[in-house]
Design a protein around this nucleic acid. Sequence first.
RNA 1: GCGGUAUUGGUGAAGUUGGUUAACACACCGGUUUGUGGCACCGGCAUACAUGAGUUCGAGUCUCAUAUACCGCCCCA
Length: 426
Amino acid sequence: MRYQKPKGTLDILPGESQKWQYVENVAQQIFSKYQYQEIRTPIFEQYEVFARSSGDTSDIVSKEMYDFEDKGGRRLALRPEGTAGVVRSYVENKLFGPEHNNPYKVWYHGPMFRYERPQSGRQRQFHQIGVEALGSDAPEMDVETISMALNFLNELGLKDYKVVLNTLGDVQTRKNYHQALLDYLTPLKEQLSADSQIRLMKNPLRILDSKEAQDQKLVADAPSILDYLTDAAKKHFQVVTNLLDQIGVAYEIDANMVRGLDYYNHTIFEIMVTSPAFDNREMTVIAGGRYNGLVAQLGGPDISGVGFGLGLERLMLLLEQANNNLPEFLGPDIYLVDVNDADSAAVSKLLTQLRQAGISAERDYLHKKVKGQFKQANRLHAKFTLTIGDEELATKKAQLKRMADGSEFTVDLTDLSGILQQIKKG
RNA sequence: GCGGUAUUGGUGAAGUUGGUUAACACACCGGUUUGUGGCACCGGCAUACAUGAGUUCGAGUCUCAUAUACCGCCCCA
C-alpha cells in the first residue's frame, strides 16, 4: 500500500514553511498596528453555522461543504470560510457586551475546506488570513479595512494591484434591485446561458458576474444597482469613496461585482492582481466587505461587521513570482566535529552549553568520519566548525575553523565566552 | 459535478514497430586522503516503470478500471 495525501491537500515542507511563517508574521505586525488581535476558533462548527450564514443556495453550502456526522450524531462541517465561526464566537462569548472594546477587531489564519476540483492555487484544504471588525457600521471602518489590506500587501512588497469596489446597499436596496433585475432579465430568459437560467431562479445577482459572452451582452444593458440605492445606502457608499479619495487610494467601481455568500451588503471590495504567476490573468487575492445583519442572523444583537479574507496559496504564488527577499532558514553558527565516539559525550555537553548561550549549534548523529562531518557542516552552511578529539580534550585547546575562508583559530575549551565571542565576530 | 492531458529511482529524464542487464545527467553514499569541507578521479545507487486487472509466448511500451497531478468549465481565495 502506497499512501498519498488526499486530493487537493498540500504538504508544506521546510523551506516552504518559512514563507508561510513570514507572511503570518507580517500579518500579525501590520494588523496589530490597527489594533486587531488574533482569534482562534474551531476548524469545525455546527453545520448550521455555515448553512445559515452563507445561504442554503450558495455553492459553498450546496455542493462544496465538508459536512459529516460525528459519533454522537451531531451534524458538523469543516469551515469553508472564516467569518461565520468568528461571528458565532462573538455572539456566543457576548463580545458585544459593555466590558469589551467595540468595534471588536480580530484576525485569524488557518485552514479552510471546500470540496472542489483542485487547480493551481486552489486546494480542498486551503489557507486564509482574514480580519473582522464587529460593532461599527461607520463607513470609516470600511475604509480602514481596505487600507489595512493594502498596507499588508505593500509590506510584502506587492505593488501591482488594483482595488475594485461596489456596494450591494441595504436590505431595501437589495429588494428593489432584485426585482428590477428580474423584470429586466425574465423576458430575456431564453437568451441567457443555461447556467444563468438557473441562476435567475436561485440568485439573479450572480448573472451579473457570468463569463458567458451571451450573458455579458445582456448584462451590459441591465439596470445598475447604483441606481437603486436607498438614500442611506448611497450616503454610506459616498463616504467610503470620498475617504478613499482623501487618503489617496485608487479604486475602480464595478457595479456588476457580486458575492457568492449571501451575508454581504453595503461595501464590497476585491483586490486584484495581474501577475505571471497566474498567466497574466486578473486574479483576486483579497476579497472583503460589509456584513451587517450576520451577527443577528447567528443569534446576536443587530450589530454590523466588516472584514476581508485572503487566500494564502495564491499569495504564495505571487510572492514567489515577485521574488522578494523571502527569509531563508539559516544554518548553524557552529558545527561540532567529534573525532571518535569516545569524545561524543564531551561534544554533546559543549553543544548544550553553546545552545543555552543562545547560538544555533549542530553535531553529527550518523557516526560519520571527520571528513564526512566537514562535508555535512559545509552542506548545512555552518559558519564555524570546532574539532574535538582526545588531544583537544587533554590539552583543552581546539581549532575553531571559519568555513567561509578556512581560517582557523585556537580556542580554549574551558573558556566558553571566548568561543562565543569568536563566533559572534563571524 | 463535467471535459482534456499526464503519471518511469531522491531529482531532471531517455526508452525505437511490445522482445536480452531501464540510457544519460544531477543529487546522495563510499573510496583515493587510518583527524578536516567546497575541486578531481574511481566505485555504489530503480527485482522497478502510479495502483489493479486484462490481451500476448513475451508489456514501461496495447486495453480497461481506479488513484493522483495539471489545465478548462462551474465556483471561488
